[in-house]
Amino acid sequence: MKLTEVLKTQVPENALEYCVNLWQEHPFSFKITRSRNSCLGNYRFQNGHHTITVNHDLNVYNFLVTYIHEVAHQRVFIFDRKKKTLPHGEEWKSRFRELMLPLLNEKVFPPEILMPLSLHMRNPKASSTRDAQLMRAFRAFDENRKAAAIHLEDIELGQSFVFKKRIFKKLEAKRTRAVCMEIASKRKYTIPLLAEITPVDR
């Protein structure tokens, strides 16, 4: 089956059969896409067809969670569309938890990810990128990232840095984000602590 061939290098080995079974239960078109800053994956229903996409540059554990996240959206559309649902409301959270439950074990996820992932699934957020602890756990297994990548959380307060081709200064660290001032405009922004940045020598 084509989907098996596509997924076998993208998800943990012990999750492959389960992922394919989800497709067999309710088929959809599946595509691996370029990296998108706005999302890790996407689900849409258009012209009578279900389509799920996942970014190509995720490690196998992040890819798996994103895949299940999007399948949960499909299940809400199929089973709950007669209700008035929010994109990441209670119906989606319930479907996501239900689909993830068989995977929450050490045969699929290493302990370093399983613990924060289990906590995340108690009340899943609209995007796993909003869970700093979980993203740190995923990041430890990112083989395709530069080993020397520097993140905003790694630099000291007062340090200047480049982010998205603009120069900022880190002013204050909060739980998951930092208050930063853009040097050119003097305007303040909040930027995720896990954002990859390039420090500027002071």
Score class of each variant (00 low, 15 high):
1 M>F: 09
2 K>E: 14
6 V>Y: 01
6 V>H: 03
8 K>T: 10
9 T>F: 08
10 Q>W: 08
11 V>S: 06
12 P>K: 07
12 P>Q: 05
13 E>V: 11
13 E>M: 03
14 N>S: 14
14 N>E: 14
16 L>K: 02
17 E>F: 09
17 E>L: 12
19 C>P: 08
19 C>I: 07
20 V>C: 15
21 N>S: 14
22 L>F: 09
25 E>V: 13
25 E>W: 04
30 F>S: 04
31 K>P: 01
35 S>L: 03
36 R>I: 08
37 N>A: 13
39 C>D: 07
42 N>T: 09
43 Y>F: 15
44 R>Y: 14
47 N>K: 14
47 N>M: 06
52 I>M: 11
54 V>E: 09
57 D>I: 02
61 Y>P: 04
61 Y>E: 02
63 F>C: 00
65 V>L: 12
66 T>Q: 05
68 I>P: 01
69 H>S: 07
70 E>L: 08
71 V>E: 02
73 H>R: 02
73 H>N: 06
74 Q>M: 14
75 R>T: 00
76 V>S: 03
76 V>D: 05
77 F>L: 08
79 F>P: 01
79 F>M: 02
81 R>G: 00
81 R>W: 12
83 K>F: 12
83 K>W: 08
84 K>W: 13
86 L>N: 11
87 P>M: 09
87 P>G: 06
90 E>T: 10
91 E>F: 08
92 W>I: 10
93 K>Q: 15
94 S>R: 15
94 S>P: 01
97 R>I: 05
99 L>K: 03
100 M>W: 11
101 L>W: 03
102 P>M: 03
104 L>N: 11
104 L>H: 07
106 E>A: 14
107 K>Y: 08
108 V>C: 09
109 F>C: 07
112 E>V: 11
113 I>C: 01
114 L>Q: 12
115 M>A: 12
118 S>L: 00
118 S>M: 01
120 H>N: 09
120 H>K: 00
121 M>V: 03
122 R>E: 15
122 R>G: 09
124 P>Y: 08
129 T>C: 07
130 R>K: 13
131 D>M: 06
131 D>H: 09
132 A>Y: 13
133 Q>Y: 06
134 L>C: 08
136 R>H: 12
137 A>G: 06
138 F>T: 01
139 R>N: 15
139 R>A: 09
139 R>E: 14
140 A>Y: 02
140 A>F: 02
142 D>Y: 04
146 K>Q: 11
148 A>T: 15
151 H>T: 13
151 H>I: 08
152 L>E: 03
153 E>D: 10
154 D>K: 04
156 E>N: 12
157 L>S: 09
158 G>K: 04
159 Q>L: 02
160 S>R: 15
160 S>F: 07
161 F>R: 02
161 F>D: 01
163 F>W: 15
163 F>R: 03
163 F>H: 14
168 F>V: 03
170 K>D: 04
171 L>Q: 13
174 K>P: 02
175 R>M: 04
179 V>W: 06
180 C>L: 07
181 M>K: 13
182 E>H: 02
182 E>W: 06
186 K>P: 01
188 K>Y: 08
188 K>Q: 15
190 T>Y: 06
194 L>F: 05
194 L>V: 01
196 E>F: 00
196 E>Q: 05
